[in-house]
Simulated scan of single mutants.
Amino acid sequence: MKAQHAVIAPKWHTVAEVAAMLGYGLTKTKMLVITGEMRSLKDGRSRRILPEWVDEYIARRVDEMERAA
């Protein structure tokens, strides 16, 4: 009998994970959170970011770049 492995997609990300996904440094990503440019929520002493909030940030940046061009 073969073992089956479930792939579990994370429901939210740490700031460090988002930094890695975006190719940003941790400091820049923390500033995005502090300034409110990237939505996040406080979970105890940690910050968490929902995947759709990362998508919203990316879409907003693309829109800004397209309007500037």
Rank of each mutant, 00 (worst) to 15 (best):
T27K: 12
K11Q: 00
P51S: 04
Q4N: 08
T27H: 13
A20N: 13
V18P: 04
L26F: 12
G44Q: 11
L32G: 01
K30Q: 15
R60M: 14
L50I: 08
E52C: 06
G23L: 05
D43S: 10
K42R: 11
M38R: 02
P10C: 01
G25P: 01
I8W: 12
G36K: 02
E66R: 12
E52Y: 13
L41Y: 02
H5G: 12
W53L: 04
A16D: 08
R39H: 11
G23K: 04
G23Y: 09
E64K: 06
A69D: 00
A9D: 03
M21C: 00
D43C: 07
Q4F: 13
A9R: 08
A9L: 12
V18H: 07
R61S: 04
K42E: 10
E64L: 11
I49A: 03
M1H: 03
K30D: 13
S46E: 15
H13E: 08
R45Q: 15
Y57K: 01
E17M: 09
A6H: 13
E66A: 11
T35D: 00
A19P: 02
S46F: 15
A16M: 06
A69Y: 10
V18Y: 10
R45V: 13
A16K: 08
V62P: 02
E17V: 05
V33I: 08
S40A: 15
M38C: 05
D43R: 05
R47K: 12
